[in-house]
């Protein structure tokens, strides 16, 4: 047998072996990749409606069993702006952005960090996570943490397991007294989410990184003008 034929056959074997290994190790979520889903969840935080009450964080902690000391959502407060007694504060939500091009998913060596193709939710498969913390280092928004009780990576999953599976809205959305949080399907033009996005100017954090985040913010119009 000449050399080139031999190399060709060897190559074929390699490809077949590689494919079979791939089918064994690919995450179950990847099976639906070909179908185009009608669902894509996203969230808006209206900083003008937010009063910084922290009810969202409290509800999330309760519903998702988040231990003290860590949190899936944080309302960052800045201020006061203006002179007493005409003072105001600004509130900005920090939680997983459910990036379309999620760096955390790209670096995860075990496939524990994954994008649910059906809903667009970036979630953590607890059984696969080995706690290597690559995702924590890779997330440009610094919202991932190791849950001190389960010892695996944790973050907001839009209440995928706790609320959405029951047909309920995320806990933080339900808890917000001022309706500052709007959650819904980006692909449904009749959804409250799309209506909000089309009626209010919004911004997203660090878009220049190419992460394509799905957490939108309505910027505070109050106090001094920020350039």
């Amino acid at each position: 047998m000449d050399n080139s034929k031999r190399r060709f056959l060897k190559g074929c074997g390699g490809v077949i072996a590689g494919m079979s290994v791939y089918t064994v190790t690919q995450p179950p979520q990847a099976n639906t990749a070909e179908q185009v889903s009608e669902l894509k969840y996203a969230m808006v935080h209206d900083e003008n409606l937010c009063i910084g009450c922290n009810a969202c964080e409290d509800a999330c902690r309760k519903v998702n069993n988040v231990p003290d000391g860590v949190t899936r959502v944080n309302i960052e407060r800045s201020g006061p702006f203006g002179e007493y007694p005409n003072q105001s504060y600004r509130f900005s939500r920090h939680s997983c952005q459910h990036c379309e091009a999620a760096p955390c998913v790209k670096v995860c060596p075990t496939g524990a960090a994954y994008i649910d193709e059906e809903t667009g939710i970036v979630a953590v498969n607890e059984d696969r996570c080995v706690g290597c913390q690559y995702c924590i280092a890779a997330c440009p928004y610094q919202i991932r943490f190791i849950n001190p009780e389960t010892r695996v990576a944790d973050k907001c999953d839009f209440c995928q397991q706790t609320q959405l599976s029951e047909g309920l809205l995320p806990a933080c959305v339900l808890a917000c007294p001022t309706n500052a949080l709007v959650f819904g399907n980006l692909k449904d033009p009749a959804s409250a989410l799309v209506k909000t996005l089309k009626s209010k100017p919004t911004y997203r954090d660090k878009v220049d990184l190419g992460t394509r985040p799905k957490l939108f913010h309505v910027r505070t119009i109050d106090g001094e003008i920020v350039l």
Binding site: L49, C53, K62, P177, T178
Partner: peptide, 17 residues
């Protein structure tokens, strides 16, 4: 404390959908 405090805000700040 905690959620009791945030719920006390809701007493005045509640917006109906």
């Amino acid at each position: 404390l905690g959620s009791e405090l945030s719920q006390s805000c809701a007493k005045c700040h509640l917006t109906d959908i």
